[in-house]
Every structure is written in structure tokens, then in C-alpha cells.
């Protein structure tokens, strides 16, 4: 590969990295907005999963495109894998604990199969 071609690829990678970083940061920002604005516990939980999954993937993709070293990419992939495995577990435990300790008021839910099923 010639020097000029290398430069073009570096530029492309940098631009892609910038786009990834911006989108990831936007998702993290909207998570902050969501966690503040949504009215009750379960709705706020949705705000958390969003930056944790796609936002993190985008931000780390941005890092990988900028750093371009295999050992760093491997470690970033590991971060994403841990996050994908752990974040649903954490979300599920928080949601279940909230539901069982009555943090969710019935008027916050349009449909509630779980309470209906327990009641009847």
C-alpha cells in the first residue's frame, strides 16, 4: 500500500471514529435526559440499557478505530462482551426488586399482566 492510500484510510477511520463517538455520546446524553424525565422506576430502567449496550459499543468502536492496535481492540471487545452479559442481569434484578417492593404504582402501567395474574 502506498503512503497516499494509507493516509486516505487513516482519514476514513478517523471520520468513522468521530461519527461513532458522537452517536455514542448522544445516546449517553439521552440516557441522562431519560433517567431524569421518565416518570417511574421501570421507565427509567429503559434509559439505562440504551447507552450501556449500543452507546458503549459505538464509543468503544470509536476508540478502536482511532487506536488501531490489536491488543487494545481485544480488550475493548472484552468490555463489550462483559457488558452484554451483565447489563440484562443487572436490569432484571433492579426491575424485579422494584416490582416486588412496590416501587411501581399501578397507575404508571397501562397493562399489568403480572399483578393481574397474581390477583386472579
Amino acid at each position: 500500500m502506498t503512503g497516499v492510500g494509507q493516509d486516505v484510510w487513516n482519514l476514513v477511520a478517523d471520520v468513522l471514529a468521530g461519527a461513532c463517538l458522537l452517536l455514542g455520546a448522544f445516546l449517553a446524553f439521552s440516557a441522562g435526559v431519560g433517567v431524569l424525565r421518565f416518570g417511574h422506576l421501570l421507565a427509567r430502567m429503559h434509559a439505562v440499557t440504551k447507552p450501556q449496550v449500543l452507546g458503549l459499543i459505538l464509543l468503544l468502536l470509536g476508540v478502536a478505530l482511532r487506536v488501531r492496535s490489536w491488543s487494545a481492540v481485544a480488550m475493548l471487545a472484552l468490555v463489550v462482551a462483559f457488558q452484554l452479559l451483565t447489563s440484562p442481569v443487572a436490569a432484571h434484578m433492579v426491575g424485579r426488586a422494584g416490582f416486588r417492593t412496590g416501587k411501581v404504582r399501578p397507575e404508571d402501567l397501562e397493562v399489568d399482566d403480572l399483578t393481574d395474574e397474581r390477583a386472579g
Binding site: 455514542g24 455520546a25 441522562g32 439505562v48 447507552p51 452507546g55 458503549l56 476508540v63
Partner: peptide
């Protein structure tokens, strides 16, 4: 998560 994002951004 945002802290992770900030460190990633710095990197």
C-alpha cells in the same frame, strides 16, 4: 456508563 464513555473518549 458515562464515565466509561468519557475515559473512552479521552483514549
Amino acid at each position: 456508563t458515562i464515565l466509561v464513555g468519557a475515559i473512552a473518549l479521552e483514549a
